[in-house]
Amino acid sequence: MSKEKFITLQSTAVPLAVENIDTDQIIPARFLKATTREGFGENLFRDWRYDGDGKPKAEFVLNKSTFSGKILVAGKNFGCGSSREHAAWALYDFGFRVVISSFFADIFKNNALNNALLPIQVSDAFLKKIFAAIEVNPSTFIEVNLENQFIKLPDGAKESFDINPYKKACMINGHDDIDYLLSLNDEIREFDLTQ
């Protein structure tokens, strides 16, 4: 499956200043029963977004008309917990293309990269700066440049981020890991025989 290509993005952002957001919050287990990849956005942050009767909670950021955009900005250790790729699907399905945090859990990061969702790790200080900027002005446009690996605020504040060159190429070209692996079929077959 080839995916959407990602090169640059300019968007407003949604702030979620909570640390250790685990994948059970991103998409609770009881919504993992679908057998396709689509439709998970509806239940993104389900228990923070809706009360027990399914009514939207006014105070939750995704329910506020003030904030919107393709970028989610979240506290440290985003995506910890379960390996469910549904968390990445839900964020993507909802419309996010980038998640910014000062730290990501390993499996989540991998899952996001496999699904055209770009996780960007910034310093604690820069994360604070982004939160402050959005807080003051919710229509702040954040520039994400994957090609040159930087992220920039309208006031010129800029920070570069790391991404593995292979993953970067996959994101930019919309390629999947599986394409590369399938091309190695014969070598793997031989290896299997020696095991």
């Binding site: 790729e85 549904h86 991998n110 899952n111 496999n114 890991d177 599986i178 793997i188 299997d192």
Partner: peptide, 14 residues
């Protein structure tokens, strides 16, 4: 691993 990787393992054992 995530589901994309489950697919990779099923398809290539890697």
């Amino acid at each position: 691993i995530g589901t994309s990787e489950v697919e990779q393992v099923l398809a290539t054992q890697c």
